[in-house]
């Protein structure tokens, strides 16, 4: 629970000026109706989004409401697991929990059929990665697919010609 039972450390002059008060709180969080459908979908290798009934935009993952219209999302749509890299960064800094060898690429991908972009790992030599690059998802085998974005291991280049700027300029 807490360190309250341990005596506080005294400074050299014998005064107590600092205490340690660790905080631990546990939560059971609900993903929500829309996101739960999406997470079930990825375990089956499907990318499910929803189309806003007002502005017709498709959000993947879907969300509780359309952020521009403030209405509930409508029709469920499945989008492709291919897309366009809209922007990216090259990671050179190590941090705890890192699974990739440095340097590696993390990017925003506009999936074909979606009107937003999601972020994921990009498996490609950093010097070859560029905006507009065409990518496809590499899925984890069905039997070990978690209900999270880690159901996709990373995105890899398809080798197709780059997408034109106008096709993804709204998704930066």
């Amino acid at each position: 629970m807490s360190d309250a039972s341990k005596p506080a450390k005294k400074d050299a002059d014998g005064e107590v000026r600092r205490i340690k008060a660790p905080v631990k709180l546990d939560y059971t969080v609900t993903a929500g109706l829309a996101l739960s459908r999406f997470l079930k979908g990825v375990t089956a290798g499907k990318l499910l989004g929803q189309r806003c009934g007002v502005c017709s935009k498709v959000y993947v993952p879907p969300r509780g409401g359309c952020p521009t219209c403030g209405v509930g999302m409508g029709e469920q749509v499945e989008v492709k697991d291919t897309g366009t890299l809209t922007t990216f960064c090259i990671v050179n800094v190590p941090f705890e929990g890192q699974t990739m060898k440095l340097p590696y690429v993390y990017g925003l991908i506009a999936l074909d059929g979606a009107d937003n972009a999601l972020h994921h790992l990009i498996l490609a030599p950093p010097e070859e990665v560029r905006m507009g690059m065409r990518l496809r998802a590499e899925w984890v085998p069905p039997e070990s697919r978690p209900a999270s974005m880690e159901a996709i291991r990373w995105f890899v280049p398809t080798g197709e010609p780059d997408a034109p700027w106008d096709s993804y300029k709204e998704h930066l």
Binding site: L33, G65, V71
Partner: peptide, 16 residues
């Protein structure tokens, strides 16, 4: 408690 809806899904019908 609400077992399924998230915050936005609780809030949206109320605001509307």
């Amino acid at each position: 408690g609400e077992p399924q809806r998230d915050e936005v899904e609780l809030l949206l019908p109320v605001v509307t």
